[in-house]
């Protein structure tokens, strides 16, 4: 699920970086305001814990084994804002040290797993007030949201994929999401037994219900919105048929407005404009993060 560099089109990685950078700056500010520097070593060690917990193999039937992804577990342990920051630190370390996921694609990976994945995990947990059902659904929705977003981003970027592969990957996502749910539940139950009170009890109340329900719907529909942006992807998923004209439409449509015009217009002018645009957007990204950082320092 870690998207490496070289897969996403310029449009997709620029937009996701643009969403992820200020988002993480805001969440960092929130987590810091709530917990102050007391939390820094704890969050770092929790990130290392998720890395290490990924080394523990869980049997997943048929002799295969699986491991925890951890975004949902972190959000139940630390709350969504701090969990997002820890997941971001994990993703950045994986991209830099292990070449697991790209640097330009880091925005997309952060958006999928550290922002959408963490919140999609926290909402059902808060909705069911930290019960076992809530823990299972936390793992399930966290992984499912992240996986659907990652697949949608790849499809929008014009990565060619036979239509049959789409249904196979959806089935695979469902299985892995159920496994992640079971693992989140199992580990959380074991944690409760060893160290009672370590799970954060979500804030109760009717408003929390409504807000979390609404946000859950928004998040899941956002995932589908991405997918239905390219209706032929869903169509082929429904039909499961590898008809060649469907395949060509699958390839042609994402390249429709960007790459095709890239070729039709004088290439030099177009690519100059594209690169200048990227630089401007990156500058904006920096400026927004910087402004947020500046207000944080004044506030501190």
């Amino acid at each position: 699920m870690h998207i490496p560099d070289g897969y996403l089109s310029t449009r997709v990685w620029v937009i996701t970086d643009l969403v992820a950078a200020p988002g993480i700056a805001l969440l960092a500010r929130r987590a810091q305001a709530k917990f102050n520097h007391h939390l820094i070593p704890l969050m770092g060690v929790m990130g290392a814990f998720v890395f290490a917990a990924q080394m523990i193999n869980f049997p997943a039937g048929n002799g295969t084994s699986s491991h925890l992804v951890g975004a949902a577990l972190l959000s139940c342990l630390l709350g969504p804002a701090a969990a997002s920051i820890v997941m971001t630190a994990i993703l950045a370390t994986q991209a830099l040290v292990f070449q697991d996921g790209g640097l330009l694609a880091l925005g997309a990976n952060i958006f999928n797993m550290a922002i959408a994945g963490v919140f999609a995990g926290y909402l059902p947990y808060a909705m069911f007030r930290g019960s076992r059902v809530g823990l299972f659904l936390a793992g399930f929705f966290s992984l499912m949201t992240a996986a659907v977003l990652a697949l949608s981003e790849l499809l929008i970027s014009g990565v060619a994929m036979p239509p049959a592969m789409l249904s196979v990957s959806f089935a695979w996502f469902l299985v892995s999401a159920a496994i992640e749910g079971a693992l989140t539940l199992a580990v959380a139950v074991a944690l409760e037994r060893i160290q009672p009170g370590c799970l954060r009890k979500p804030v109760a109340g009717g408003r929390a219900w409504a807000v979390s329900g609404l946000a859950a719907v928004l998040l899941s529909s956002a995932g589908w919105l991405f997918a239905s942006d390219r209706p032929d992807g869903l169509e082929s998923l429904a039909l499961k048929a590898g008809i060649s004209n469907r395949v060509t439409s699958l390839i042609a449509s994402p390249f429709g407005d960007y790459q095709a015009s890239f070729v039709a217009n004088p290439r030099l002018a177009k690519s100059v404009a594209g690169l200048a645009g990227i630089l401007v957007i990156y500058g904006l990204c920096m400026a927004i993060s910087r402004a947020i950082g500046a207000t944080r320092r004044e506030g501190a």
């Binding site: 917990a53 523990i56 693992l183 139950v189 944690l191 060893i194």
Partner: peptide
């Protein structure tokens, strides 16, 4: 395995 993860935590 889940107990191991718990202890590790």
């Amino acid at each position: 395995a889940s107990a191991a993860a718990g202890v590790l935590f």
